[in-house]
């Protein structure tokens, strides 16, 4: 019996060890691949940075709004960004590739799920990023236009514009991820309606005087201006 137990145990152990022994080289190989992958990614990143700096990659975007846009989104300049993306892409790619080669049942499926989910995540993130950028841009445009047109409370107007765009972008991003379609739609509708109602009430009640003043300034004074003012240019 004992012998059976020992035999089984030893068989099991030996099987386990055999398994371990069979897995270990693969594990080591996988680890080596992963390490090589990350090192390679790092080297690639380094080379890419040098090359991009050498070809003045950033200069390509000098006259576009990309650089200030990235800065606004707390992101590095284009060359750095590209290099980092390559680094992470290569590193993660090697990791996933290596782990799938371990041959562990189920892990492969999970990994492939994760890999399949990545594009959606990226798209959602991009949508959100774009939304933030657009919100920033149009918010500022509204602010400047309102200031230069002498509107009352320009910052409020600007914030409303910004808020609406962010909400819209967030909705789109969540929709992209497939998170509670209906909930998102309802939430968006509610918040949008609330803002509109708020604005209507604000102008209808609280902003009555402001509104009157704005109207007064816009119309009757226009004539007076033309009489006593040419142009401060």
């Amino acid at each position: 019996m004992w012998q059976y137990i020992v035999g089984t145990l030893s068989t099991t152990l030996s099987q386990f060890f055999r398994g371990i022994m069979g897995l270990l080289p693969r594990l080591v190989a996988v680890l080596i691949i992963i390490v090589i992958g990350w090192v390679g990614a790092f080297i690639l990143q380094w080379i890419l940075k040098k090359v991009l700096a050498w070809v003045r990659f950033n200069a390509l975007f000098r006259n576009t709004s990309l650089i200030p846009t990235l800065r606004k989104a707390a992101l590095p300049p284009p060359d750095e960004l590209l290099a980092r993306l390559v680094f992470w892409g290569v590193g993660l790619g090697f990791t996933f590739l290596a782990s799938s080669s371990l041959g562990i049942f189920g892990l492969q499926e999970e990994v492939s799920k994760i890999i399949l989910f990545i594009p959606q995540l990226v798209v959602a993130l991009l949508v959100l990023l774009l939304g933030l950028l657009l919100a920033n841009f149009f918010g500022r445009a509204t602010l400047l236009a309102a200031v230069n047109a002498n509107y009352a409370s320009p910052r409020f107007l600007s914030n409303v514009v910004q808020f609406l765009i962010v909400i819209f972008a967030a909705t789109m991003a969540l929709d992209q991820l497939g998170v509670g379609h209906r909930v998102v739609l309802i939430a968006f509708s509610i918040s949008f309606g609330a803002v509109m109602l708020g604005l209507a009430i604000a102008f209808g009640l609280g902003g009555r005087d402001v509104a009157r003043r704005i109207l007064e300034r816009q119309f009757p004074e226009k004539k007076k201006e033309e009489e006593d003012e040419i142009s401060p240019l």
């Binding site: 000098r62 006259n63 576009t64 709004s65 650089i67 200030p68 800065r71 606004k72 841009f137 500022r140 445009a141 400047l144 236009a145 200031v147 230069n148």
Partner: peptide, 14 residues
């Protein structure tokens, strides 16, 4: 090009 150039010019107006 710290911000959009057109915005920058508009900011100069006031």
């Amino acid at each position: 090009s710290v911000i959009n150039r057109d915005h920058l010019l508009q900011a100069l107006v006031p």
